[in-house]
Every structure is written in structure tokens, then in C-alpha cells.
Simulated scan of single mutants.
Amino acid sequence: MMAAEGSNFVQPAIPKFDGHYDHWAMLMENFLRSKEYWELIETGIPIADNKAELTEGQRKTIEGQHLKDLKVKNYLFQAIDRTIMETILHKESSKSIWDSMRQKYQGSTRVKRAQLQALRREFEVLQMKEGEKVDEYFARTLTIANKMKAHGEQMGQVVIIEKILRSMTSRFDYVVCSVEESNDLDNLTIDELQSSLLVHEQRINSHNSGDEQAFKVFYEDRTRGRGRGGPGAFRGRGRGRGKQTFNKATIECYKCHKLGHFQYECPNWEKGAHYA
């Protein structure tokens, strides 16, 4: 019965080094402590100055420590990738391997942590600039997000999507509200969101272009005296907004259709009035 229970016991897996030293060291320390081998990492193998003077009991103790150290080295060999292990010069003991790993990667882990904090702050204050295109803003946002992932940040698509929706300029308020109300953000992809915002951007640009063209036609008609209400109406609309300047030589008379004067200044208008 006891044998059956022992055979069902699941051995803990050896933690693989994935580049994040602090996390790996914590898992590996716990693993070695469960095997009662952590003392070899802390103090190393006892070295006898003169083996001839050792008692039989002392000699067996040292041999037992060497055997344990070989087991710990075997665990470390399985946990550390071959390319990294080849950069470790001293492999005489498990302690020398452990100390080399700490010197190589603990400092870089601190640097990565500091860089990640800086990227988090940059991501938090990220805002779309006035006049910035959708593609340009997505490129800026995803560049920072990818750097954060490379430094160990666990960032899902929904975090990036929510950030983008929160930081768009006011001209996208309508489409942002529409996206939030009509989509489940957990199932919405970044590409789908970018596509929706691009369509809205194109509509905005085409609408603004149409407004500019209409104003241009309106202004040209007014300055030539063809607009509704004649030239007097044009001058009245400009009142209070600064003096309107135009070339009178381009003005076309409604009466005689000659250039250079308005209808109320036309000499033919005066003749017609006396005749009546």
C-alpha cells in the first residue's frame, strides 16, 4: 500500500532558466531545499587540508558531500541551456556554477526591471497627438508594448486596446463610443480596432476636404458678385470680422455684365431709372 502511494508521488520539475534570473533563482532554491541540497550552494563542499589525517567517518562525510554535489550539478545542467553553460568557466562545484549565474544575470535583471518601469511610465502617459494619423499612433503604441513584453511584461491585447481607446483625440470620440458599445473588447483584436479607426479617419478627411472645396466656391462666387443677395450681402457677412479686401476689377455688373463696378453703380441702371 505504501509502495503504491510512493509510486503516485509526482516529482517536482526542475525549473528551467528562461532569462529572468530572480524568478528562476527563487524556484531553483526552493527545489534544492526540498531535496535538502541547498547547503551545498551556500557553503560549498568542505575541503580537507590533509586527507591522510582524516578519520574514516570524516572521509565518508566528505565523500557523501561530493556525491550530493554531483547531484546538484546534474540538476543545474538540466536547468541551464547549453549555450549559457558553455560561458561558465568554473564547473568544479555546484556553488561555482550558481555564483557564476548570479554574477552574469542578477545585474542584468535589475537593469531590465528599471527599463520596464520606464516603459510602463511611457505607456501610461502615451496620448495621440493632434493631427497624428491612426497608423502612426498605432506604430508608436505597439513599439512600446513590444518593448515591455521583451522585458517580461505580461500584456494582453485588451490592455493595449483599452489604452488606445482612452488616448485618442476628440475627433475620434464618436467611433470610440461606438466601438465600446458594440464590441466585446476581450474578443476584439488590435487589427480590427485599427481598421475601424482608419475608416473613420478617411471619412473625417473626405468630409473636411468637401467643406474646404465648398467654402472656396462660395468665396469665389461672392467676390465676383454672383452669390445670393449680390455684393452687398457679401460685404455684410464680412462686417465685424475685419475689412474684406478684393480686386474691384474682377467684379461683374448684374446689369450690363461688364467688369469694374457693381450693379448699383452701373450707368445703364441710371438711364433705365430715368426712363421709367
Rank of each mutant, 00 (worst) to 15 (best):
A139Q: 12
A139R: 10
R140A: 00
R140K: 10
L142H: 00
L142P: 00
T143M: 10
I144E: 00
I144M: 05
I144A: 02
I144H: 03
I144Q: 01
I144F: 05
N146T: 08
K147P: 00
K147N: 10
M148K: 04
K149A: 06
K149P: 02
A150R: 10
A150W: 04
A150Y: 05
H151V: 08
H151K: 11
G152F: 04
G152T: 08
Q154E: 14
M155K: 02
G156T: 03
Q157E: 14
Q157N: 11
V158L: 02
I161L: 02
I161M: 01
I161N: 00
E162N: 06
K163Y: 02
L165I: 03
R166D: 09
S167M: 04
S167V: 07
S167H: 04
M168A: 07
M168S: 05
S170G: 05
R171I: 06
F172I: 02
F172T: 01
F172R: 01
F172H: 04
F172C: 00
D173G: 04
D173P: 00
Y174C: 09
V175P: 03
V175F: 06
V175N: 04
V175S: 06
V176Q: 01
C177R: 12
S178I: 04
E180W: 04
E181N: 06
E181A: 08
S182P: 01
S182T: 10
S182Y: 06
N183K: 14
D184C: 03
L185H: 03
L185D: 01
L185A: 01
D186F: 05
D186Q: 11
D186V: 03
D186T: 08
I190M: 01
I190E: 01
D191P: 00
D191W: 04
D191Y: 07
E192D: 08
E192F: 05
E192S: 07
L193D: 00
Q194K: 15
Q194S: 08
Q194M: 12
S195N: 08
S196R: 15
L197V: 04
L198Q: 12
L198V: 09
L198P: 00
H200E: 14
E201P: 04
E201W: 13
E201A: 14
Q202I: 06
Q202S: 08
R203S: 13
R203L: 09
R203Y: 11
I204D: 05
N205M: 12
S206R: 14
S206E: 12
H207N: 09
H207G: 09
H207T: 12
N208T: 10
S209H: 08
S209Q: 13
S209R: 08
D211V: 12
E212P: 05
A214W: 13
A214L: 15
K216P: 00
F218Q: 07
Y219S: 05
D221C: 11
D221M: 15
R222S: 09
T223V: 15
T223P: 04
R224A: 13
G225M: 11
G225F: 12
G225S: 12
R226Y: 15
R226F: 15
R226M: 14
G227M: 13
G230L: 08
P231R: 15
G232C: 11
A233R: 15
A233S: 12
A233L: 13
R235W: 13
G236I: 12
G236P: 00
G238L: 10
G238Q: 13
G238N: 12
R239H: 07
R241H: 13
G242M: 06
G242L: 06
K243M: 12
Q244W: 13
Q244C: 10
T245F: 14
T245L: 14
T245E: 13
F246Y: 15
N247Y: 15
N247M: 14
